[in-house]
Amino acid sequence: MVLAEVVGNVNSIGYGLAAIGPGIGVALVFSAYIQASARQPESAGYNRTWLILGFALVEALALFGLVLAFALPATAN
């Protein structure tokens, strides 16, 4: 008699844990931009370029993790 059964893919749990890293990375990128703009307001335009580049690179890691979570097959024992 089965009372409860866990059905699904463990890859989604792995992606959920792997999304913590890019989340922290985005927070660090934006905090560095805010701090740099507060210290040197005249360089905010120049720093905004690096903000967008850093955000895109960090988010790319999260998207790769999402694609891999769905692309890799689940192994059944």
Results as ranks from 00 to 15, higher is better:
Q40C: 13
I24R: 04
E59P: 09
P73L: 09
I13W: 14
N9D: 10
G54C: 05
Y46T: 05
L28A: 13
A36Q: 06
G23S: 07
A62N: 00
F30M: 11
N77R: 06
N11D: 11
I52C: 14
A71F: 12
A60I: 09
G8Q: 07
F64W: 02
G23V: 04
A38H: 01
S12H: 10
L53G: 12
G65T: 00
P22T: 00
F55N: 05
G23F: 07
G54E: 04
E59S: 10
A4R: 04
G25C: 04
A36H: 06
V6L: 10
Y46D: 10
L63P: 03
A74S: 03
G21R: 14
G45R: 01
V26S: 03
L66I: 07
N11T: 07
G16A: 06
I34D: 14
V26I: 03
A69C: 11
V2E: 15
I34Y: 13
E59Y: 10
A76V: 09
A4C: 07
E42V: 12
G65H: 00
I13P: 15
A36T: 04
A4E: 05
L72R: 03
I24K: 05
A60C: 10
L68K: 00
Q35S: 12
G25M: 05
A38K: 02
V10F: 13
A18D: 03
G21C: 13
N9A: 14
L57T: 09
R48I: 04
E59I: 12
G25L: 04
T75M: 14
A32G: 11
N77F: 15
T49W: 15
V2R: 13
L3N: 07
G23Y: 08
L72P: 04
I52E: 15
L3Y: 13
T75W: 14
L63N: 02
L63V: 03
F55W: 12
F70E: 08
Q35A: 12
A38Q: 04
V29D: 06
A27F: 10
E59V: 13
G14V: 11
L66E: 06
P22H: 01
G16M: 08
V26K: 01
L61Y: 01
A74R: 01
V29L: 07
L28T: 07
S43K: 03
L72N: 04
F70W: 09
E5K: 01
A36W: 05
I20H: 09
I20G: 11
Y46F: 09
N11H: 09
V58W: 02
A69D: 08
A27S: 08
F64N: 01
G21S: 15
V67K: 13
N77Q: 09
G25D: 03
Y33H: 05
G65A: 02
N11S: 11
R48G: 04
F55C: 08
L63A: 06
G25K: 01
L66H: 07
E42I: 13
A62E: 00
